[in-house]
Each structure stands twice: as structure tokens, then as C-alpha cells.
């Protein structure tokens, strides 16, 4: 599995397939990226579970915080890890102990741990690293185009009516990888300076 760039179909398949997402490192502080992403994904219909031991007893947009993945009482399709690269492995180890096993491990923009990815993939999970699910959802629905962002998709079909934000569209043709070549190369050079 190449984790430097992902085919849109891979990302689209994940975002279409999962229904419940546990967000490790979710913050109740409304200027943190994890808060943005949590709220955005909740508004688009995902069953969101905030995981953060520092906020047990509180809730995030009506969803009670749990201290760890172990404390979740229902099946989770995806674990979205909002932690630094150095804190990924413990979260993946915990995810591996869940039953049923989550289908997807997603590491947030800026986070990458290839060893943890390998471990999760060996257990049959799909892995996405160094991406934001909010940005990817926005890009694949073309909603992010409202901000002048290059969605790297084309379509000659009428766009869906935006309601509470755009909905994920399957009818768009993706350019290769949905990635922007120069930006991806730069990101790779940062993680692998050789």
C-alpha cells in the first residue's frame, strides 16, 4: 500500500462505507482542528464518538466523551487519530483490541507512523495517513471548491442541491490520485529527507 498518495476511489470507498467514527484526541475547544472535523463529520450524518481521557464527564455536540477506545459500547467502523505521529502506535494498539475490529485507521493531517500502519494492515484494516477526513469529504463532494481549492475532480453532471453542506458525490471523475503532484512530493520529502 502506497501511503504517499491515495486513489480517490480508496478514500471515497472509506468515507462512503463507514458509519461510526471514534475520534481519538477530539477537543471541545472550538478553534482546534479536531473540533472542526468532528462537527463537520457529525453534520454529515456520521455517528461520532469523542475519545479523550481529559474530558470524561463532558460531551462534544451532545456526544459524551469516553476515556479510551475500550470504553466504547458499540461497534466502531473507523478510528480517526488526532495525535502527533509519536502518539499513533498506542492508539492503534488499542484499536487492535476492539471487537469487532474497526475497518479503518485514519491518521490526521500531519500524522504518519508507517510501523503502526503496517500493524493495522496486517490485521486487515484499511489505513489512511496524513489526511483530514473533513478536507477529503469536502474535496470529493466539491464543497471545498467554494474556497478556491483544487478538488482534482471534474463533472459534467448537475451538482447535488447543497442542503446542510454538500453530500459526498460518486459521479465525479477523479484526476490521478486526487493529489497535487508538487505538494505531494514536498510532503514526501519532509517525511523522508533522503
Amino acid at each position: 500500500m502506497n501511503h504517499d498518495s491515495y486513489d480517490d476511489d480508496y478514500i471515497r470507498g472509506i468515507l462512503n462505507g463507514v458509519k461510526s467514527i471514534a475520534m481519538v484526541g477530539a477537543s471541545p475547544v472550538n478553534v482546534r482542528p479536531s473540533y472542526f472535523a468532528f462537527k463537520y463529520l457529525a453534520q454529515r450524518g456520521y455517528d461520532m464518538i469523542p475519545v479523550n481521557p481529559g474530558h470524561v464527564g463532558k460531551s462534544l455536540l451532545g456526544k459524551p466523551f469516553v476515556a479510551s477506545l475500550r470504553d466504547i459500547d458499540r461497534p466502531v467502523d473507523m478510528v480517526d487519530i488526532f495525535r502527533n505521529s509519536s502518539n499513533i502506535m498506542p492508539a492503534v494498539d488499542e484499536a487492535l483490541k476492539m471487537t469487532p475490529l474497526p475497518k479503518v485507521i485514519w491518521m490526521q493531517l500531519g500524522a504518519r507512523d508507517d510501523a503502526a500502519a503496517e500493524k493495522a494492515e496486517a490485521a486487515g484494516m484499511k489505513v489512511v495517513m496524513n489526511r483530514c477526513p473533513k478536507i477529503e469529504y469536502g474535496r470529493l463532494s466539491s464543497e471545498i471548491s467554494w474556497m478556491g481549492v483544487n478538488s482534482r475532480t471534474l463533472s459534467s453532471k448537475r451538482a447535488p442541491m447543497p442542503t446542510q453542506g454538500m453530500r459526498l458525490s460518486l459521479g465525479r471523475t477523479s484526476l490521478s490520485g486526487g493529489a497535487t503532484a508538487a505538494a505531494d512530493r514536498a510532503a514526501k520529502n519532509r517525511t523522508d529527507p533522503s
Partner: peptide, 14 residues
């Protein structure tokens, strides 16, 4: 903006 970003191979434009 998106069109020029795509033509230039950039991530976004203003």
C-alpha cells in the same frame, strides 16, 4: 480559482 489552480498544478488559488 479552481480552474487556474488546476492548470498550474497548485492546491488552491485566490
Amino acid at each position: 480559482e479552481e480552474r487556474v489552480a488546476a492548470l498550474e498544478g497548485g492546491t488552491a488559488a485566490l
